[in-house]
Design a protein around this nucleic acid. Sequence first.
DNA 1: AACACGGGGTT
DNA 2: AACCCAGTGTT
Length: 308
Amino acid sequence: MHNGGMPAIDPTLLHRELDDWFAREGRDLPWRRPDCSPWGVLVSEIMLQQTPVARVLPRWIDWLIRWPTPADLANAPTDEVLRAWDRLGYPRRALRLAECARAIVDQHGGMVPRDEDALRSLPGIGEYTAAAVVAFAFGGRSTVLDTNVRRVLARGVGGEALPRPHLTTAERQRAGALVPEDPAAAARWAAATMELGALVCTARNPACDRCPIAGQCAWLAAGKPADAHAVVRRTQAWHGTDRQVRGQIMRELRAADRVGRSRLLSATTAGSAQFDRALESLVHDGLAVEWASPDDEPQYSLPAARTR
DNA sequence: AACACGGGGTT
DNA sequence: AACCCAGTGTT
């Protein structure tokens, strides 16, 4: 096994330097505090899926005050859940979080499970989130691989500017091999690598001069070569998409009790064909319900009752 | 493996 | 206007 003449990685040194840096520079986020419950951590992880910390913070605080345990959320009406989710985006996550709460009550006696496979089987919890809850809620050993960690390892260990578009088995192995044996150390490693990717080893302008592991970084040593598999990935369009129209409809539904189709349509930038497609998809997803009216246009609202 | 799915802050 | 961001579930 060779690594192209790049400096050998010393995991022990890596762990210690990142540990020290995280203790010094890590943000004091409420879901990282020792008194935060596993449920609080789980809620934060769902909200943080594709959503920045700054926007999650106020929603998370309100959410935990209102539904401090899985049992509390399990009994909440769906419309209240969706209004509390507000504009965090991807509102299906809110539905899945409520389903997740019910599954925790039904299958785990209301306690967030510690087992990674059990977590993985809950609604809305995939590979990343299961590993994150193991580490951050229970201080357990897991391989936490989010976009930040992937970038840190792609650079520091792989010598490449950015990770591949898709997670590979080889990448999982590389990440797993670097996880400290001690569970508490593994949890700190997960938090520190994520934080490094978020604060220093950012996608666009990495602050290598402030990086605690710059001395061991394969990418820096190689002269920071450009992304090998760049371009290709075009960002998804946003304006005029069905997603945008869905968001416009959801905003209107959150603001009203019931809304007629025509008023809903006028709240969007869509033509009627796209509007109907978006509205139908929301009904299909369980984010909206239709109230048929014999002699007037159909009315729509958020789902009032929870769908048990 | 590819696709659908929000929204707002930053550059 | 483009770019970025603590992913998951479906097909």
